[in-house]
Amino acid sequence: MAVANFRKKLIIAVLAAALISVAVIIFTAIFPSFCAVDNCTDNNLSPVKKNDNSVWNIAVVQGGHHQTYSELLKSFSAGIAEYGWIEGYLTEDTVNLTGTYDVLDYITEECRSDYLNFREEHRFSSEWNKTLRSENLKALKSKSEAGEIDLVIALGTWAGTDCKSLSADIPVIVMGSVNPADTGIAPDFAGDSSGNIYTLYDPDFYYDQFRLYHYFFRFETIGIAYDNSTPESRSYSHIDDLRRFSDDYGVEIVEYYTVDDHPDIEISRRSVYDAYEYLAPLTDAVIITTQNGVSSINAEEFLKPIKKHRVPSFAIDDPELVRYGVLMSFAEPDYDNLGKRYAEAFSRILNGCNVSDISTEYRRDSSIIINLKTAEEIGFEVPPGLVKASDTLYTG
């Protein structure tokens, strides 16, 4: 369905650009990041050694490489450096580091700490391989049960899910899990940590995104492509948030199941293309979700049927996709704030706070990213007020 249909619904907004600008500012200001009051009375963030005067051994676990993980780890490292846990950490030195292990190598080789060890034997990356994942979990359990590990940093949903099986005596900080409630990492998420697992999560972030997209486009049907085969793959789609939005706003959802977890990446990519080829002629808008078959490498290809049918597309997790042709995203990661919050929790845990006593309430800021070339290609005239309120505009 052509975007021309949306123009009629947006004509008031187009004529009243100033009002749109005000509306955007209001919407993006409604959900500011904040740190809620929690039950731990010890607010000491200063570095301390263990009771026997030895240093803390920190393990880092990830399902595989992902840019989000390295960015979060860099921001977290800057935070613990600010509190004195490591010395010599310079943010400008890590700007071009793209891998988690690159960041850890920098910390161990270029920085100094009298309090922390990030040993190489305490790093576990499964490289998105199920067999290696099982082996790593076995090794992690063995080392933690032997008393070699004092705290685990789990990067992503795979790692967070696996670390649930560790002893309750080992605190785990989960970063970069897109939906810890749906995957059971934090099953009772309500602003409090679950047992020994600490993670920050904004339970309304994706619901609020859908509301924002609907505010500007007033779509009646929306398409979503995702892998429905496991709770983990399903969590990346945020389908439960979309269904809640659908119920509240009367929007019809059209779903298509893709193949995300396949050893041949080309099969995953083909399933994504097939999905949008199916969805584009049936919907007023489509959501681009996180999955192996979606990346900047094949964005031009899977966007072809979407653009052909002049349908607006929204990247709900990866704003970088807007650079490569997706129309819009409100999902710019707030790495600096997240890293500092995780550094605070880390510091308080090692100073004696129980994980379950530290608040996990968090509200993500929204940024507006628009691809003006895509807007032109699908025939959507971006209201001037929306352009003015945008944080990033791509024109080529």
Rank of each mutant, 00 (worst) to 15 (best):
L242E: 03
T283R: 03
I222S: 04
P171L: 13
T108Q: 15
L140N: 06
E109F: 10
S233T: 15
D336S: 12
R243F: 06
F6A: 12
C353K: 03
E301L: 14
Y362K: 08
N196D: 02
T91A: 15
N43Q: 10
P281N: 06
V322C: 02
W56N: 10
L166P: 01
A375M: 07
N5H: 01
S313L: 12
V103E: 03
L166H: 09
C353S: 02
K340N: 10
S271Y: 09
R133C: 07
D317L: 12
N5V: 02
S165H: 05
L45T: 11
A13G: 05
S235L: 09
V24H: 03
D274H: 03
N43R: 10
T221G: 02
R7D: 00
G339A: 11
N228L: 14
A299S: 06
F302E: 05
V61S: 11
Y226E: 08
I11C: 04
P32F: 04
D169W: 10
E92L: 13
L212G: 04
T98D: 07
E232S: 05
M175Y: 09
D208T: 09
N196C: 10
G352L: 11
S237E: 02
N298T: 08
L72N: 05
W85N: 12
R270P: 03
G79W: 08
L303F: 14
S70F: 04
Y394H: 13
D204G: 02
D182L: 14
E301N: 12
V48R: 12
Y69N: 01
K130L: 13
S126T: 02
N117T: 09
T283L: 05
V55M: 12
A18H: 01
M328N: 09
T91R: 15
I86G: 07
D102L: 05
S237H: 11
N337E: 12
D93G: 05
L372Q: 08
S246L: 12
E87M: 08
G191M: 11
I153H: 07
R348A: 10
G84D: 14
K141R: 14
M328D: 05
T28Y: 11
Y213A: 00
Y89N: 08
D248I: 00
V311E: 11
N53I: 11
V95T: 09
Y206I: 09
N5E: 01
K143R: 15
Y213R: 04
S271Q: 02
A275R: 07
I369Y: 08
D114T: 07
F118I: 08
A4R: 10
A275F: 07
N298P: 09
E332F: 00
I316N: 00
E376D: 15
L279F: 06
K9I: 11
